[in-house]
Design a binder for these strands. Structure first.
Lengths: 232, 232
DNA sequence: CCTACCGATCGGTAGG
DNA sequence: CCTACCGATCGGTAGG
């Protein structure tokens, strides 16, 4: 029983789809971005180890030295995609130092931004949440630092809001874990072609997160900075 | 830059740990189970494609033909472990036909059982939730059928409880997705050696799930059948 | 159940 | 300094 032929054949069948993802970019645009777009699609479908450089290059209708001109190796391609998605999702709880709004107001905006980033980056997000085990320990550590900061910001806002009597929840850290789980595990079920359009999906999921921290308000509109978190 | 040597070296360093996992079984017990115990540990650490049969055999201090005597191939080892975990987690919402209790009471027990199964099987559960992409399409379909039944049972109880005025939530299907996410994504952060002992962890996480469906009650005690869902 | 291997394919690079 | 490849093959490892 061989495992390789199946994914390769499947990949060839889907070459058109992967290439189409790259087509969205302007014709003369950075070829590096074309590689990343195709690689993201294949990494999402087959995982890091299940995707070969030949598959990526076949989808690009090019050869390996072309990819190696832009990237040192397969790891670098993967880490570039993963890092972008992680930064997009994990900076949602950052606010400028002079932002004087109440904690629960900031938290509401932060949760909305987090959910919007998870929906917009659900493919590349999967690489960070699902494929971590095959990554370089240094890169894993870098991702962990980013996540630690996110959790710190999130827990701070949660506890401040609770101290102000605006929120209700029990274990702060576990509630934060549960919140992140909802965004992170989306790779397993979400598809943009589903029942709800992305904006409605973000709103519905955000209202579930609100409920988890005992926040009564509804997510009103797209948060101001959500656009910046979307993929280019 | 070579990638293979690193995981292999790491695996060899951890051979003692993986072997220790197998030691918990009685000496003359089924050798098949020893293979599964060691394999579960390594699959959890390195993923399906990142784990080689040589790594498993090194941890068992044996050679490949030994493993191939008990299993057809690497896929079969993986699927055996993954199937057990999936069944444990995904049957939590099943109740006998003559169980006449109210929907919200059954749901409370079901959520508790689900969470207990996720905590007890967090390692093997990761294989089902994280490594699906490298699996045989047939096995993926089998897992999807199991999940579909679980979601159907879960959503039915949720909507019945809501119709009875005992629960509050908005989108049924998305709330169900969010609930499963909390259990499924645990592979990314849970460790039995953490702050809370497993029983307390199950209780805390279950109360978060209760909140998501607007259930006021607290998880009281271990559900009767939770023990049966634990790993042997 | 082990020693000894196989067909193939992996990521990555050579010269042109 | 950059783009865009080719045919052939490197050292190692995969599942079996």
């Amino acid at each position: 029983m061989r495992k390789a032929p199946t994914p390769v054949r499947t990949a060839r069948r889907n070459v058109a789809g992967a290439a189409a993802a790259a087509m969205h970019l302007p014709n003369g645009a950075d070829k590096r971005e074309r590689i990343l777009a195709v690689a993201e699609d294949l990494f999402f479908k087959y995982g890091f180890l299940g995707t070969t450089l030949d598959m990526i290059c076949a989808a690009l209708r090019t050869t390996k030295p072309f990819a190696y001109y832009y990237f040192k190796n397969k790891q670098e391609i993967f880490e570039t995609i993963t890092w972008r998605a992680s930064v997009a999702c994990m900076t949602a709880m950052k606010f400028p130092a002079d932002d004087r709004r109440a904690a629960h107001v900031k938290l509401a905006e932060g949760l909305h931004r987090f959910m919007a980033a998870c929906v917009a980056n659900f493919r590349s997000g999967a690489l960070a949440y699902r494929d971590t085990v095959s990554l370089r320990p240094q890169f894993q550590a870098k991702l962990r630092r980013l996540a630690r900061n996110f959790y710190a910001d999130l827990c701070t806002l949660m506890e401040e809001g609770r101290a102000n009597g605006k929120l209700t929840f029990e274990d702060t850290k576990l509630t934060a874990r549960a919140i992140v789980s909802v965004g992170a595990f989306m790779y397993a079920w979400y598809t943009p072609e589903g029942r709800l359009p992305p904006d409605a999906m973000v709103r519905e999921l955000t209202s579930i997160l609100f409920k988890m921290v005992g926040l009564r308000a509804k997510p009103m509109r797209d948060p101001v900075s959500a656009g910046k978190l979307r993929k280019a």
